Computed example of a mutant assay.
Amino acid sequence: MKKTKYIFAIITFLMSFGCALFIANSMFGNILFGSRPVSILDKIKEGDMIFQTSQSKQCEAIRIATNSKFSHCGIVFIEKGEKYVFEAVQPVKYTPLETWIRHGKENQFVVTRIKNASTLLNIETLQKMKNYAKRFNNKDYDLYFEWSDDKIYCSELIWKIYKNGAGIELCPLQKLKDFNLKDTRVKAILAERYGNKIPLDESVIAPSNLEKSKIVTTIIDTY
């Protein structure tokens, strides 16, 4: 009887492990390579940019105003061998990569990488980017999308890290008035934030601007 229970326990464990592995494979596109699960996340390198669709009224307004499915983004850094997304939320912080992915709608995400990254993003340059990024850690999220360092939003964070840490301008800045501000949902958010004094000439950068940059290439797209 004890032997039967022992065998049953082993079978149950193996079935549970198999189910867990199947779920992980489904979420992150893992495949079996030899005896080790190889994930599409293994393709992601330090300095890569990652984009997702977040779900909130503000994020919906961002998607509409920028005519894009993306409303949030971050930059990938490696700390002690683990991949993190450095992101501007409240507050700015490092989020484990897989946790960050699960925060997005249906776990979907896109990863882009600057062209010629192997040359442009050497160890020294990446360290400069990480050193520059540290000044923003734990800073407040910028609800007003102002182009200052007092507070900061997600796409602004990435743009400034590349510009000031690596000397690379990912794309030109835009003005707030350049976006689609006529939709009632966008108007509601603007009225809530600014009242009647909308800073139409404020310099801004959107996740979609970074994702469409002419100097990046798409590495992963799970949409």
Rank of each mutant, 00 (worst) to 15 (best):
M49D: 02
A61L: 07
N67D: 13
V92A: 13
T53L: 12
Q52G: 10
G47Y: 07
I50E: 02
T95L: 07
H103V: 05
R102N: 02
P91D: 08
E82N: 14
G74D: 02
E98F: 06
T66M: 06
E98H: 05
V110T: 09
W100F: 12
E87P: 02
K93Q: 15
V85R: 01
I64T: 13
T53H: 15
S68N: 03
E87T: 13
E46S: 13
E82P: 01
N107T: 05
Q52Y: 01
P91C: 12
K69M: 11
S56H: 11
D48P: 00
P96K: 13
L97P: 06
P96L: 13
Q52C: 03
T66K: 05
V89G: 04
I50M: 09
P91V: 08
F77W: 02
C73S: 14
S54R: 14
K93Y: 01
I50L: 12
E87H: 08
G74T: 09
E106N: 14
C73D: 10
E46V: 12
F70R: 03
E98V: 10
M49P: 06
S54H: 07
K69E: 11
Y84W: 07
V92K: 01
E98R: 15
S71L: 07
Q55T: 11
K57D: 13
Y84P: 00
K57H: 08
D48T: 03
